[in-house]
């Protein structure tokens, strides 16, 4: 029965947040395209939001602050995705590729 009461425990949400973060790090390291890395970075941001919401629900004195923080993270993620997609499109137009190995002109 303890399995069905997981949604009332802080630890459950912390583990879910850490799991999203771990998936994001895995994707960031193993992916070779810009869009794949962008998807993985969205997972990392989502894990951070999950932690904020968990602490907001269980520990924080004023439960409005964590929700506001998560809203700001959403705004930053949306802006970041828009910029990243436009950079990807600009890179694709110049190199005909979004593979990170092909974009080696910027090596110092």
């Amino acid at each position: 029965m303890a399995l069905l009461n997981l949604y009332n425990c802080l630890n459950t949400y912390l583990v879910i947040g850490a799991m999203l973060f771990g998936f994001g790090i895995y994707g960031l390291v193993s992916r070779r395209t810009f869009i794949g890395m962008l998807i993985a970075s969205e997972l990392v941001l989502s894990g951070a939001s999950m932690n904020f919401m968990a602490f907001n629900r269980f520990l924080a004195p004023d439960p409005a602050i964590g929700q506001i923080f998560t809203l700001f993270i959403m705004g930053i993620a949306a802006a970041e995705a828009a910029i990243a997609v436009s950079i990807v499109i600009a890179v694709y137009r110049n190199y005909k590729s979004i593979d990170t190995e092909d974009i080696v002109d910027m090596h110092g």
Binding site: G17, G22, Y26, V29, S30, T33, G36, I98, T100
Partner: peptide, 24 residues
Amino acid sequence: AGNKGSPIAGPLGFAVGALMFAAL
């Protein structure tokens, strides 16, 4: 998705991600 890069990138990334997940 372009997973054709270095062959150790996948296992290495999995190890790093699993380590971060376990530690956190």
